[in-house]
Every structure is written in structure tokens, then in C-alpha cells.
Design a protein around this nucleic acid. Structure first.
Lengths: 72, 72
DNA sequence: ATTTTTTATACCCGAAAGGGTATAATACAA
DNA sequence: TTGTATTATACCCTTTCGGGTATAAAAAAT
């Protein structure tokens, strides 16, 4: 799953708007938008600030490896 | 496992020097060094260029979740 | 110990990320 | 349709990443 879609999905399942997520994560609104639009030149630490809100973080995973979701 | 250690380990298990890895990945030598030194303000796309050489990529993983290694 | 190889730190600089903000576009509700 | 809420795009500006390079430190080899 693409990172951009992952963030979108987690955000909407948490009922957060982009401005709310930005504030909670401590990043700019512009960053949240770039991230959800799939911009891949974003900074690692900023991405992690966002993911941390959902209990996730960036890590190296084998290509084509699927991370199990929260349900198992 | 920390990303910096992951890269170091993969690189040395592939018998590559930092300059060699940089060239193969298409990034600068400075970047490889920053990455292995644990700098967390690096760019996502550049990290992926490096990880791709080892068959890995960055992805959102649950905090405290351990990715199985190549052996299974 | 000495030489060679590899890695770490430091500097300069162009390019671009990211924040703020404004506006347009879209989605949604009434 | 009209009005509201949310998201997308665009601009300006400051900060800094990342490349190149040089030098120092460390590691490895002889």
C-alpha cells in the first residue's frame, strides 16, 4: 500500500481533517498535503511525526512484503 | 532495528564501500554517510534509492513490529 | 610500526523542502 | 441550487538537504 494512501486512510478513520492532523503531528499543513498527494521527496523525520500518531513508523521492508494490519 | 544499522549491515554483507554504494544507488557519498550516521532528516526518495539495492523499501510498520529477515 | 583502505567530520553552495498564507477546486449537507 | 467544510494548487520566504570536495580519524592489511 502506498504511503500516501496509508496516511489518508488512517486520518479519515480517525476522523481528522488535514489541519487537525498537521497540528497534532507538529508539522505544517502543507506537509500533510504533500504527503497525501504522494510527494516522495519528503523528509523522513516529518513522515515519522505523522505516522507516530497512528502507532506506526517508517522502516525498511522487503519489496513486495505486506505488513499485516491492526487486526492481525 | 535502526535504519542506519540496517544499511550498514546490508552494505557490508554485500562487500560494498560507501563510495561504491553511493554510486550504485545513484546518490551522493555525503548522503550515504549521513544515512549511516543516523541522520533522520534525510529524504524519503533518496533512502529508497539505497534500500532498493538490497530489495527493500521504506514503508509504514507498526511501532514495535519486527520484520522477518531474509531467512524467513 | 607503517602503509593502505575505509570511514567520519567540516566547509561551500545551489536546489528544494517545508512553513505560512491565499485562492481555487472539490465534496458534502441542507 | 446554494452554502459550508474540506482538500488541492500556487506563491513567497527561510531553512537546510544533498552534492562536491578536502581533511582528519579510524580500521585493516602488510
Amino acid at each position: 500500500m502506498k504511503l500516501s494512501d496509508f496516511v489518508k486512510e488512517k486520518r479519515s478513520s480517525t476522523n481528522l481533517t488535514q489541519p487537525e492532523l498537521a497540528e497534532k503531528a507538529g508539522v505544517g499543513l502543507r506537509f500533510v498535503r504533500d504527503l497525501e498527494q504522494g510527494k516522495d521527496t519528503v523528509r523522513l523525520d516529518k513522515v515519522n511525526q505523522v505516522l507516530q500518531l497512528f502507532g506506526y513508523q517508517l522502516g525498511a521492508i522487503p519489496i513486495n512484503y505486506n505488513i499485516p494490519d491492526d487486526k492481525g
